[in-house]
């Protein structure tokens, strides 16, 4: 059963990835990306990371994708046509490189020994949130500054210069 779900989700994810990579139209690529986000959210659920799955959906599928859509809509598409699709030569060079990399990564993962913390996690959401607001409170604050800065930056860059 587990493997079945895995198989389903991973096929979904792989297909979406292929879409992101090879679909000509950026909007289609974006849609594939959304589909990937859903697949990954499913994986998170499957791995019992419920909080993350929710946030994935909220932040990615809503916030980030909306950003994209907003930008895409401000751009006149007839001009974009020239830059659709992908570079074939780069693909031919890059694909084998990444294939080998994948093999090496896989080798390292399968060979590597994982640590054992052995924490009995009952309520995932609760544990994560607790950690987030105790140990990782400080980084959380930093993250908020990052977001703030990025927001200001986006506004600065995106606004029309007078």
């Amino acid at each position: 059963m587990e493997w079945l779900i895995f198989g389903f989700l991973s096929t979904w994810a792989v297909l979406s990835v292929l879409g992101v990579l090879f679909l000509k139209n950026p909007i289609h690529a974006l849609l594939s990306f959304v589909s990937l986000i859903l697949a990954v959210a499913g994986m998170f659920l499957h791995l019992r990371a419920e909080l993350l799955a929710g946030l994935q959906l909220i932040i990615y599928a809503v916030a980030i994708v909306v950003f994209y859509v907003l930008v895409i809509t401000t751009i006149p598409w007839e001009k974009v046509k020239r830059f659709e699709g992908f570079y074939k030569r780069e693909f031919l060079a890059g694909f084998p490189i990444l294939l080998v990399s994948f093999a090496l990564f896989a080798y390292a993962i399968l060979k590597g020994s994982f640590a054992k913390v052995g924490l009995e996690v009952k309520d995932n959401v609760k544990e994560v949130s607790k950690s987030l607001f105790t140990t990782y409170l400080f980084p959380l604050e930093v993250a908020s500054v990052i977001l703030l800065t990025a927001m200001i930056g986006a506004i600065l860059l995106g606004r029309k210069e007078e």
Binding site: F67, I146, L147, I155, L157
Partner: peptide
């Protein structure tokens, strides 16, 4: 969070 902020700046 980081991804979101990068996307924001990048899109800007």
């Amino acid at each position: 969070a980081v991804a979101a902020s990068e996307v924001a700046v990048g899109l800007g």
